[in-house]
Design a protein around this nucleic acid. Structure first.
Length: 804
DNA sequence: AGCACGCCGACT
DNA sequence: GTCGGCGTGCTC
């Protein structure tokens, strides 16, 4: 006799982070299932909130009076048992609220929208009634749309019971539907009807003729009206007379309408075959096993993905493929669609909420058995998963940097284990964590050491910019790079130039006193934007005029310092006026689809030089590119983070892979001020193994991941003192309970200690084994709830991708 | 989150 | 004296 539902309510706080019991009213007794969304009354005002049913029971340990569930929002569960238990895993492992985990797993459209509705009571003042309720019986209360005066007046009316507030939970999930017209009678019946229609009814006769046509097929109502001019009224009559049936069907917004030509599996090289066989064997035996597929750019990893996915599909299972957002290009998607056709669903950030929901529904209904997508696609509602692929597994974008701070790789491994399916982590430059696990035998390591078609790796040279500066005037281009560019342009070949912008920007500095223009809200320098002729803050968007005299010493020698893509572009135009340059950075790719358009233009040789930031390092494949230049390799080395060498190595290796992918030999020139640095030297020889060994040694010596686990705790507050006080208190608490082998770094102000007028402090705990740490941190969070009201916020980030 | 309750300052 | 500030506790 189940009658009590356990509901996680949509109130993301520590105190409400557990299921609440609600009575299931008899009317809903047979309807409510675990995994459905419901509307419940919550709190004193019984405001309506959305909730998720996570259990059904016939008793509750709650002593008080139970409320009833108000309504069910779904006809069938939106979360199956797997995803529900995944939500729990997420919440637990990332210190997030269960409801936040659930929201993350569900598509945006299934998140509730709340509206406050104001209704006048009979005691309302006549003036107020005239002002607010003259035209409508109630009004939607939206603080952003009303003036401050109106808001305070309405609140006063509320206090004096002249109006009442009710809450409406709105379901945003609307599958796009269309009305279709179906014939509901046989031809002879229709003929009989035709005879009965009165003489003047031209429209009705026309419709009947149409329906009697042997070629008549079910047609959408708008299409019918459009092509025949038959009116809606006529159709209504026809429906009443029983000639037709009008039905609402779900249609899909198709973001990739074009058909993709089918492709066949490509022949495999020996190592690829070995990999495919090893992975297929696990699929065949329904066994969970993680693989590290390590292969240089151009070694044919994608073909291994496609053929193993095909294996899973063949076995009647489904396949999930994750790629970084930036690699999710139409070329990439088309490669998968070429193999799996209509079975493919694509999930990426460019889709509208509605489109995402449509794809989600297709997957859920089993219409799409192959899913390709970026980070959040790891939650795709696939059942019976046969294989999970994660390409470029080292990419830091797989980790979400807001709560829940999950890493898609961890989720992929969790789901692989749940479904007893292999998980393939692919990369040319695996993260140290993954490579180390392969070393330990936790993952099976598969290596693709050769480029297909026996292309040679590009020839990489390193230019010492210190010498350049000594010998020449200040320039972004060394003489060697410039000579190479000219040579390639003469041969009508193309060049890719990368400006490493990580931790770097073009700011304004006074040459006399060293003053740097800073953001008043955040602890970073303002960046110069020549397109808008202003100084902008990249964190809060603050914008001000470019200074002509130094605000500190009144000198006129306040100049740009550092390099932005715009400045490099200007210099290029100056030195090589005949070269056609395409600039690709955040500014030129902000608009949807701009990224793709630029690349397409470059692919069709509409430009000679592609100049961009790190976004050009990924996944582009232009056979005519024979030179890749890295203008400033070391800016990412200067970042005070334990992963800065790893990042730099990965970036340089990856961008080098862009050169010479066809029959033409590629050349790479890396400009740096630290030519001896191991990350740069080893990127030059493309020697991942040596880099791995060396970096592991360093990590071991200084007790960093992957030798130690790390967890980052951050406090923020409106004043620096409050943030500091908060973090020191937590530090003290943690130190008391920590075992001797664990290490606490800090507390320290964060590298960027002030963002949007809030101050940030952090501390890092490095540990090997600390079974009680989870509970301790849970307690810290509990306590922070009390102080949270006064403005101190605490956030916990397990396994941070950086310590910054 | 949002609401009520409860305790202190400045007004009709 | 009350109105209303926001600090605190609680929501099945």
């Amino acid at each position: 006799m189940a009658q009590i539902a356990k509901v996680i309510v949509d109130v993301p706080t520590m105190q409400t982070n557990n299921p609440y019991s609600y009575l299931i009213p008899p009317a809903l007794a047979n309807q409510i299932q675990i995994g459905m969304r419901v509307v419940v009354s919550f709190g004193r005002g019984s405001r309506k909130v959305q909730g998720m049913v996570v259990g059904i029971d016939n008793e509750s340990s709650f002593e008080g009076q139970l409320k009833e569930i108000d309504a069910v929002m779904d006809l069938q569960p939106v979360l199956n048992p797997e995803l529900l238990s995944l939500a729990n895993y997420l919440a637990e492992s990332t210190f997030a609220f269960t409801i936040s985990a659930i929201q993350t797993i569900l598509p945006n459209s299934l998140k509730a929208k709340y509206e406050k509705v104001l209704t006048p009571t009979d005691t309302i003042e006549e003036a107020a009634r005239q002002k607010y309720f003259a035209t409508q019986p109630d009004m939607i209360f939206d603080e952003n749309k009303l003036s401050t005066e109106d808001v305070s007046e309405l609140l006063r009316l509320r206090r004096t019971n002249q109006i009442s507030i009710s809450y409406v939970v709105q379901d945003r999930a609307k599958a796009k539907t269309q009305v279709v017209i179906e014939r509901a009678m046989t031809t002879s019946q229709l003929e009989a009807s035709l005879a009965e229609v009165r003489k003047g009814a031209v429209q009705q006769k026309k419709l009947l003729q149409l329906l009697m046509d042997a070629n008549f097929q079910t047609i959408s109502q708008p299409a019918l009206i459009e092509s025949t001019g038959i009116s809606n009224a006529t159709l209504k009559t026809a429906e009443e007379k029983g000639w037709i049936v009008r039905r609402r069907i779900e249609v899909r917004r198709d973001p990739f309408k074009r058909e993709v030509a089918a492709t066949r599996p490509l022949p495999l090289q020996a190592e690829q075959q070995t990999a495919v066989t090893a992975i297929s064997e696990q699929i065949e035996q329904d066994r969970y096993q993680a693989f590290l597929l390590e292969g240089v750019t151009g070694s044919g990893k994608t073909e291994v993905y496609l053929q193993t996915m095909a294996k899973a599909i063949e076995k009647g299972k489904t396949a999930l493929m994750l790629v970084p957002e930036i690699s999710l290009t139409p070329q990439m998607v088309n490669r998968v669609k070429g193999r799996f056709g209509h079975e493919v669903a694509v999930l990426h950030s460019g889709l509208s909420d509605g489109e995402k929901y449509d794809e989600w529904r297709r997957i859920e209904r089993g219409e799409a058995r192959v899913v390709v997508g970026a980070r959040s696609a790891v939650f795709a509602p696939l059942e019976n998963i046969g294989i999970i692929i994660m390409d470029e597994e080292h990419e830091s974008s797989y980790k979400q940097d807001e709560s829940p701070r999950y890493h898609a790789r961890d989720v992929a491994l969790w789901r692989g284990r749940y479904h007893q399916a292999p998980v393939v982590l692919g990369s040319a430059t695996p993260s140290l964590e993954t490579r180390a696990r392969a070393e330990k035998g936790l993952y099976t390591r598969l290596v693709l050491p050769h480029r297909i078609n026996h292309q040679s790796l590009p020839e990489v040279s390193v230019v010492d910019m210190k010498d350049e500066i000594r010998n020449h005037k200040e320039s972004n281009f060394s003489s060697q790079l410039l000579a190479s560019i000219k040579e390639k342009l003469q041969r009508k070949e193309q060049v890719v130039l990368m400006l490493n912008r990580r931790g770097y920007s073009s700011f304004v500095m006074c040459r006399d006193c060293g003053f740097v223009l800073m953001c008043p809200n955040c602890d970073i320098s303002l960046t110069l934007h020549m397109d808008s002729h202003s100084m902008k803050c990249h964190y809060c968007g603050h914008e001000e005029a470019i200074p002509t005299i130094c605000p500190n010493c009144q000198s006129r020698k306040i100049r740009y310092y550092g390099t932005g893509t715009q400045k490099v572009e200007a210099e290029l135009k100056d030195i090589l006026p005949e070269a056609r340059v395409l600039r690709m950075d955040v500014d030129t790719t902000r608009r949807k689809g701009a990224h793709e358009k630029l690349l397409q233009a470059f692919g069709q040789h509409e430009a000679d030089i592609l100049l961009g930031t790190q976004m050009i390092a990924k996944g582009l494949d232009f056979p005519n590119v024979t030179l890749v230049g890295v203008l400033n390799a070391d800016t990412s080395l200067g970042i005070p983070d334990f992963r800065s060498s790893e990042r730099t190595f990965q970036l340089l290796t990856q961008v080098s892979g862009r050169a010479g992918r066809a029959e033409k030999k590629g050349q790479v020139i890396i400009q740096t001020f630290n030519p001896e640095h191991y990350a740069i030297q080893l990127a030059k020889t493309q020697n991942y193994e040596q880099f791995f060994a060396y970096e592991m040694k360093l990590r071991h010596e200084s007790n960093y991941p992957p030798y130690y686990y790390a967890i980052q705790i951050t406090t923020s507050a409106a004043t620096e003192a409050d943030a500091a006080k908060g973090i020191f208190k937590i530090a003290k608490q943690i130190r008391e309970h920590l075992s001797a082998q664990s290490i606490v770094l800090g507390p320290t102000p964060q590298t960027i200690s002030k963002i949007k007028k809030r101050y940030y402090y952090q501390l890092i705990v490095k540990y090997k084994k600390e079974p009680a740490l989870g509970n301790l941190l849970e307690k810290v969070l509990q306590e922070s709830q009390k102080t949270g009201r006064t403005g101190l916020q605490v956030s916990i980030n397990p396994n941070p991708v950086s310590f910054m």
